[in-house]
């Protein structure tokens, strides 16, 4: 009887250790951090990365007006199947924002979804797209965000149900879904390569336009095919070429002006996305359009 109890205890202990091992945060390795530290960061280049990455769309206050230099005080609420996530303050305020962060801490957040204190972030923060971002872009983005206005808005807690309140389990989610592989494997032209970088890494289009499975991972077999809107009624549109039916030129014009080919005007969450996309170079909007047209 005592041996049985001991065996159960050993097995349970073994399971706990295995869980602990599998769910451990895995930050950037030393060589990557060294390469990152050696980079010269340019906030002007970072501004372009900022708009391409759509940071403001989620991290400004709920009713914030469009601004050249947005205040990233957080507070917007995102309803999902797992509960509601509240976007945090990522302004350069040292108490409530990310003002005290090192470049390495910023990169671990962006590229690995790990906080400075070593906790997993929830993938509502699209690090599963940003993982494909170039180190130079991450360094530049960090430099730009440091120039933005500070906000002393305190962070609100996410509104999640058990067991999603336990961040440690996200280590398993990352094992399943966090990959820096590209979804579009072949990019025969520089424009397509740029488009892929923007769509799959920085602009994280798939986060909304690709349906998710029951564990909240992207169903890459239905890449950009849209699906039910997790945050309300209606559907996120399918933007594959046959379903969308827009030419590359029409897509690029839409991302610039918000006008669809039928001269409807973007609304909802896409309106904020378009406002950011309108600030990109025209070549970048054309590259995104080329990528979307190349999906099969």
């Amino acid at each position: 009887m005592r041996r049985l109890a001991l065996a159960v205890a050993v097995l349970a202990g073994g399971a706990a250790v295995t869980f602990w091992w599998l769910t451990r945060p895995e930050p950037l390795d030393a060589a990557t951090l060294e390469a990152l530290a050696a980079l010269e960061a340019d906030p002007a280049r970072g501004e372009a990365v900022f708009w391409a990455s759509g940071c403001a769309a989620c991290h400004v206050e709920p009713e914030a007006e469009d601004a050249d230099r947005p205040v990233l005080s957080g507070g917007q609420r995102f309803e999902t199947a797992f509960g509601a996530f509240i976007a945090p303050n990522i302004s350069p305020d040292t108490d409530h924002g990310i003002g005290g962060w090192t470049r390495a801490e910023f990169a671990n957040a962006m590229l690995r979804g790990i906080s400075p204190s070593g906790q997993h972030y929830y993938p509502a923060f699209p690090y599963s797209a940003y993982i494909r971002a170039k180190l130079q872009d991450v360094a530049d983005l960090h430099a730009f965000i440091e120039t933005l206005p500070e906000s002393n808005m305190p962070n609100a807690a996410h509104d999640l149900g058990f067991p999603f309140t336990l961040r440690r389990g996200l280590g398993l989610w990352k094992r399943l879904y966090l990959t820096d592989d590209w979804v579009m494997e072949e990019v025969p032209t520089p424009e397509l390569e740029r488009g892929r970088y923007l769509v799959e890494a920085l602009s994280h289009c798939a986060e909304c336009h690709t349906p998710r499975d029951r564990l909240g991972g992207l169903n890459t077999a239905a890449w950009m095919e849209g699906g039910p809107n997790p945050s309300g009624r209606g559907r996120i549109p399918d933007i594959t070429p046959d379903e969308l039916g827009w030419s590359a030129e029409e897509i690029a014009l839409y991302l610039d002006s918000g006008f669809t080919p039928h001269f409807d005007v973007a609304g909802g969450t896409m309106a904020a996305v378009v406002r950011a996309m309108a600030r990109l170079e025209a070549e970048d909007r054309a590259a995104i359009a080329a990528y979307l047209r190349a999906l099969d």
Binding site: R233, G258, V265
Partner: peptide, 16 residues
């Protein structure tokens, strides 16, 4: 004008 359209669609029109 487009901005005025979008401002209203933002708050008062559902996604498709």
């Amino acid at each position: 004008l487009g901005g005025a359209c979008a401002a209203c669609h933002d708050d008062y029109r559902s996604e498709r």
